[in-house]
């Protein structure tokens, strides 16, 4: 069971490990990212960020979806992290296990606008957000659980 899908440029880092993982009911973390798969050093760094007592799997987006579709994944709480909205869409098209999405940090690129704390989106992201909205039950924007959340509606208004 997927407790939460987090979209975060930095993937798994101290803030996520400390605040979100203890806030959602999860015993495992799945990082679904294609670039990381080819980079041993960043894989190692991510493994170091793993909170003790939790399981961590690092996969490509496609393999990550397959892992979530495995019947064994239904019985445990899984916190999923991807780097971009596009990756979230790709993942959610391949699995129906994701219901809730949290967006916590997207870096600034060409044609971007800051729409929520540390969240920069461009035209393409907005299209992807609308598509993601059809695939999951809820989307919220906030860095840490103690912040107040912005809705997709708020964000689209800001764009």
């Amino acid at each position: 069971m997927v407790s939460l899908l987090r979209i975060d440029e930095r993937l798994l880092h101290g803030q996520v490990a400390v605040t979100w993982v203890s806030n959602v009911q999860a015993s495992s973390i799945l990082i679904a990212n294609d670039e990381v798969m080819g980079n041993e050093m960043s894989k190692m760094a991510l493994k170091m960020a793993k909170p003790s007592g939790m399981k961590l799997a690092i996969r490509s987006v496609d393999d990550g979806a397959a892992l979530l579709n495995d019947p064994r994944s239904e019985k445990i709480g899984i916190f999923v992290i991807v780097r971009t909205i596009a990756d979230a869409v790709r993942l959610c098209k391949q699995t129906e296990t994701v219901k809730k999405v949290n967006i916590g940090g997207i870096k600034k690129r060409e044609g971007c606008k800051l729409v929520a704390a540390a969240v920069h989106v461009n035209e393409e992201d907005v299209e992807n957000l609308k598509e993601l909205d059809k695939l999951v039950d809820s989307i919220e924007f906030r860095m840490v659980p103690s912040d107040s959340a912005k809705t997709l509606e708020d964000v689209l208004k800001n764009f």
């Binding site: 495992s28 799945l30 041993e40 050093m41 190692m44 493994k47 170091m48 399981k55 961590l56 799997a57 690092i58 892992l67 064994r72 994944s73 445990i76 899984i78």
Partner: peptide, 18 residues
């Protein structure tokens, strides 16, 4: 951490959800 330590870490399996 240094290159030797990080190199050693690669061997550590445990890359699964269950």
């Amino acid at each position: 951490f240094d290159s030797a330590v990080v190199g050693g870490l690669k061997e550590e399996e445990e890359d699964d959800l269950w």
